[in-house]
Design a protein around this nucleic acid. Sequence first.
DNA 1: TTGATTTATGAAATCGATTTCATGTTGAAT
DNA 2: ATTCAACATGAAATCGATTTCATAAATCAA
Lengths: 331, 331
Amino acid sequence: MIDVAARAGVSPATVSRVLNNNSLVASETKDKVMKVIHELGYQPNAAAKNLRSQKTMTIAVIVPAINNSYYAEVIKGIENQAYAQKYKVIIGDTANSPEKELEFLNLLTNKTVDGLILVTPLLPDEELCRLADMDYVIGVVGRHVEHEKIHCVYTDNVKFSKEVVQHLVEQGHREIAFLSGYADAIDSYERLEGYLKGLREHHIPFRPEWIENGNFSERGGYEAVMRLAAKPVHFTAIYAANDEMALGVYQACAELGISIPGQLAVVGVDNNRISRYITPKLSTVSQPKNKMGGAVVQMLIHHMESGEPAEPRVRILESELLVRESSRTVE
Amino acid sequence: MIDVAARAGVSPATVSRVLNNNSLVASETKDKVMKVIHELGYQPNAAAKNLRSQKTMTIAVIVPAINNSYYAEVIKGIENQAYAQKYKVIIGDTANSPEKELEFLNLLTNKTVDGLILVTPLLPDEELCRLADMDYVIGVVGRHVEHEKIHCVYTDNVKFSKEVVQHLVEQGHREIAFLSGYADAIDSYERLEGYLKGLREHHIPFRPEWIENGNFSERGGYEAVMRLAAKPVHFTAIYAANDEMALGVYQACAELGISIPGQLAVVGVDNNRISRYITPKLSTVSQPKNKMGGAVVQMLIHHMESGEPAEPRVRILESELLVRESSRTVE
DNA sequence: TTGATTTATGAAATCGATTTCATGTTGAAT
DNA sequence: ATTCAACATGAAATCGATTTCATAAATCAA
C-alpha cells in the first residue's frame, strides 16, 4: 500500500480512502491512484484488514460429516448465500465427535470467524448458550436452542412424523414399527414423539416391541430389522427415522424374502439421492436443505452487521412427504 | 494480552513467549502467566497473529459443486488431513463458472489463505501458472498442470478407460458407444482418449457415431442415448464418462425398453453412492477420493512450511474397475 | 573480586490496513 | 478584502500479536 501511495504521489491514507470509496477524495486523485493500483496489481492484505476492522467476513460451518449428502446440501445453501453477501465459509467436520465440535468453537473465540453455524450439534445447549451470552454470533440448523441470541432453522420433526403415520394408516396399516437414530440426537427423539402422537391420533395402541434403534446408519437399519423380525411381534409397515436406515431395511427384506411394499411398507426421512433410484422407490420426507442453509446465513449476517439478532430468531421451514412406491398399497 | 500481562505483572512480550513455548522464560513466570490466561479465558487474536506471522494456517478448496458426492468426498479428505495438521479449510463453490473460480483466486493473492486447492479447475493452465510463478502455493486435484511449483493429484483417466474397454471386450462386446462430459473438461478428453486407445488395442474400427456428449449430467446422459438410438448405428455397450450420465442411460433404456445388461452393457465412472443401489448395479471405476484430498493437502503443507515444493510434485493414484451387474454378460 | 557468560525480561518496532485529527486550499458570501 | 464553510489531504495512532535489541540479574571461571 505504501508503494502504491509513493508511486501515486499521495499518502497511504488517501489510497485507503480510494479503496473504500470514501467520498472525501478528488476524482482526479482517485483516478491516479486507481491507475497505480492496477499497474502494480495491488491487493489489500486481508490480515491487516481483519485486524483493523475487527471483522473477518468469514463464518464457520460445523457438520458431523461433510460427505453425507444432507450436510453437503446444507453447506451448499450456506456457501451460496454467504458468497452472495461477500462472506467466506470455513468448514469443520467433527466426525460425530463432541470433542472435535468443541475445538471448532475456538474459531469463534479467537476471532478467526465472525459467526458460527452448527448443523445438528452434539454439544449440550449450555455450551452454546455460554458463547451466545458472550455475544458471539451463533446459528443452529436442525435443532432448537432456547436462547434469545441463537438463531435456529429446522423443520418440524413431530409434525412430519405424524404425517408419515397418517399416510401409512391411510394405506391401511395399523401395525407400524419405528426405527430410531442414535438416542441422544434431538431428531431421533422428536421423530419418535411424532410417531407416537400419530399412533395415538389414530387410536392405535402402541407396542414397545415396535421400536428399534438403528443409529441413523444403513447397517444399523439392517440389524434393527433383523432384531424386529426375530421378535414375536407383527407389523406391516416401518417408519425409519432416516433414509440410510431405510436402505438397511431394504437389504434386510431382500435377505428375509419380504417384498416391499407388498408385505411391508417403508417410509424414510431425508429424500437422499438414492431414495429415488432404488427399487422400489422409497417414500420419504424431503427437507429444504439448501434453503435451510441460506436462511441461517441471512440471519447470522443480519446479526453480525446490525448487532441485533434477526427477527424472527427461529425459522421452521416446511417439509414435504414424498409418497413413492415403497409405501403405496399395491392395487 | 495486555490485560493478561498486567494482571500477571509481566510484559506482553513475556506472555507471548509463554504462549509460544519459548524456552527463554523462567518456569515460575510461566506458571504465573498460564494461571492468569486460564483465569481470564484469554485467547490470542487470530487476525493479529496472521498479520504479524504472515501466515493464516488456512487453505482454500475450490470445487465445481460441493453437493456432488465426488467433490464432497475429496473435500472430506482435505479437511481431515488439514485438521490433523492444524490447518483450516475455506470452501468455494464455483457452480461450474470460470468467473467465480477466478474470483476465488483472490483468496490467495490477498493473503486470506496460505494455499489453494482447485478440484478439476475450469481455468486455463496459464492462469494457474501465473500465480505459481508469483510463489503462491497451489494444488490441483483431477488434472495435470505442467509447472514445477504446482502440485497435482489425479488418477490415470486414459489407463482406466482402456481397462473399461478391455473389460467390455472380454464380455464379448465389439460395438461400444462413448458418452463424454463437457468438451472442455480435461477428464472428458482423457477418458475419450483412453476409450479410443482401448478400441485400437482390440483392433476395433472406431465409428464417430458412437460418440455423444452428455455433459456429465444425468439429463445429458439420457438425451445422448436418445440421440444415439435415433441414429442408424448399432452398439451393444456404452461407456459413460461418469455415473451421472450412466443414470441417464438407465432412464433412457427404461423408456426404450432396452434391458441392461441383456441388450446393453453399461459402465460408468465415479463409483458414486447410487451406482451400488440402482438395479442392475452399475459397473464403474472407483477413485480414492479421500486419499486424493489428503495427499494434496500434505503436499501443499510441505510446500508452505518448507518453502520448497513437495517431492514428487505429481501423484497419480490408482483407480479400480468395479465390475457389477450392468456389464456382466448374462449366463 | 572481577570480568565474562548465561538467563530472564521489558521497551519498542513491526506487520498493513483504517481512521481521527489537524492542516491547507478553494470558493462563496459579506 | 475578509471571513467562513466545504473540501482534500497527510501525519500519526490504532488494531493485537511477535520479535529484535537492550538491559538487568544471576551464574560461573579465574
